[in-house]
């Protein structure tokens, strides 16, 4: 029988949640016997090759690209899990939500003490994806099946959750593994 597939995405996050997944350390060798990885920044699979049992989402949506990737994950994954504060509620990137975007632009590209910008231009190439007006948590964009809190969630939390879900068991995490920080 084919192994179930897992895909992962980092949207507007810091990769810390992906790093926490790697913090399962030597259990990663067990994990790759249990599942195959599909689209993920840790391998070179850039487009879904198959339907996935589980999709792990780090980070919320800050630009149109994030939205497209998230929708693509919803279409290809049976279960979608938001991991970490950024995916669950926007996290640190969402600190910009209360501020007019124009002010952030001016600060980064015109006002900063090291900025050299004689023409006062601001990056606007068509190759750059459109920025959303604010940072949206994953569940405001697509349906999310589970949320694992923490910044990042501890490696044990990710491990226990994955193993339970891949074995079709209900998700009962002990109190110590549920962290909000």
């Amino acid at each position: 029988m084919d192994k179930p597939k897992v895909a992962t995405a980092s949207l507007a996050g810091c990769f810390g949640c992906h790093m926490s997944l790697l913090d399962i350390d030597d259990r990663i060798l067990k994990l790759i016997q249990l599942v195959d990885f599909d689209k993920s920044p840790v391998d070179d699979i850039k487009k879904f090759t198959d339907r996935c049992a589980v999709g792990l989402i780090e980070g919320g949506c800050a630009n149109e690209e994030n939205v497209k990737v998230l929708q693509d994950f919803r279409r290809h994954c049976d279960l979608l899990i938001a991991i970490g504060e950024c995916a669950i509620m926007g996290g640190l990137p969402a600190m910009r939500n209360g501020i007019p975007v124009q002010e952030c632009l001016a600060e980064a590209y015109q006002k900063g003490p090291t900025v050299h910008n004689p023409s006062q231009q601001i990056p606007n190439d068509p190759e750059l994806p459109l920025i959303l007006d604010r940072v949206y948590p994953a569940h405001e964009v697509v349906k999310i099946d589970y949320q694992l809190p923490g910044c990042p969630p501890p490696a044990d939390t990710l491990w226990e959750a994955l193993v339970a879900l891949l074995n079709g068991k209900p998700l009962h995490l002990p109190y110590e593994l549920i962290k909000y920080d």
Binding site: M95, I99, E107, P152
Partner: peptide, 30 residues
Amino acid sequence: HVVEFRGFERFVQGRPYWEMPVLVQRLCGI
């Protein structure tokens, strides 16, 4: 092309300075 943005320089304004060491590291989990 680097296609992401955050806006950090502006949104930390107004936060207390002692938050910086715990706050800014959230730019990068690596």
